[in-house]
């Protein structure tokens, strides 16, 4: 019953789950909390439909667009498919992403004609040029071995526990993430992503939540504030906690070769 919580969690990297205990007094260690956050994302299949709108640093609003995000996350695989709904210019454009066995995030961009319109792209690619980043949506930092407690913090008047996730393995696009997690609901009220020079790249903040059929609390609306002061609102307007994954859902991942820029059946 953690499906939608995991859905929105995985998809927005700011997720929901069930409570630790009735009073929440026994705060887990950062590693344990990170593991719980990871487990909470497990889902046999979910779909979330989102309306995304951005306001640039000059105050100019870009054309809002809608996407559907389908996900399947368990101990064996973590994969997402992101499809444009509207406007028509993004209608036949999609992304598929997965976490590979070596912990890398692999992202495929494709069009209506598979496998012809298929290209492996950088995991930090922004979804339809918005602030929504495919890499963030899979929240790979919960898998990193180094999780450090950052103490208790308050975000928008809500208590949360800071966890600093750090990795040096390979060349991850983001080596450091600081999440302020509500230990009771396991919602990250704020997620900050830093580069190697510890420069803040973007902040993901939970604005509104919703209670799902399972009873879990999930993110309904979040804001992504970019370093360049672009602010993007992501509003989940529809969803399905029990989405039936079909063979076609992640076909793009099966078609694509791991090597960038290559396509094959």
């Amino acid at each position: 019953m953690r499906f939608i919580a995991s859905a929105v969690l995985a998809l927005l990297a700011t997720l929901a789950g069930q409570s630790y205990g009735a009073d929440g007094s026994d705060l887990p260690s950062p590693a344990a909390l990170a593991e719980t956050m990871m487990l909470a994302r497990y889902s046999a299949g979910f779909e979330a439909r989102m309306r995304i709108s951005s306001v640039g640093p000059d105050g100019k609003q870009s054309t809002p667009f809608k996407v559907a995000v389908v996900g399947q996350i368990d101990s064996q695989r973590e994969r997402l498919a992101i499809s444009g709904i509207s406007p028509p210019s993004i209608r036949d454009h999609s992304y598929a992403a997965e976490r590979t066995a070596d912990g890398r995030i692999r992202v495929i961009e494709y069009g209506a004609r598979l496998p012809a319109d298929l290209l492996e792209i950088e995991p930090t690619t922004r979804v339809f040029d918005s602030a929504l980043v495919v890499w963030d949506m899979l929240a790979p930092w919960w898998h990193w071995p180094k999780q450090i407690s950052g103490g208790v913090d308050h975000v928008d008047g809500r208590d949360c526990q800071n966890i600093r996730s750090v990795t040096n393995a390979g060349t991850p696009p983001i080596p450091e993430v600081v999440s302020c997690v509500d230990a009771k609901t396991r919602l990250p009220w704020r997620t900050q992503l830093f580069d190697r020079q510890h420069i803040l790249l973007r902040t993901i903040s939970t604005r509104r939540t919703m209670r799902m059929e399972s009873g879990a609390v999930a993110v309904r609306r979040l804001t992504i504030a970019d370093a360049d002061r672009t602010v993007t609102d992501v509003d989940v307007y529809s969803g399905d906690e029990h989405y039936a994954i079909s063979a076609a859902t992640f076909a793009a991942l099966d078609y694509a070769h791991p090597a960038a820029g290559q396509a094959a059946p």
Binding site: M210, R211, M212, E213, S214, D240, E241, H242, A244
Partner: peptide
């Protein structure tokens, strides 16, 4: 409908 639904509309099911 689904048993636990508290949303404006109950959750979808097969």
């Amino acid at each position: 409908t689904r048993l636990a639904s508290e949303n404006a509309m109950p959750s979808p099911f097969l």
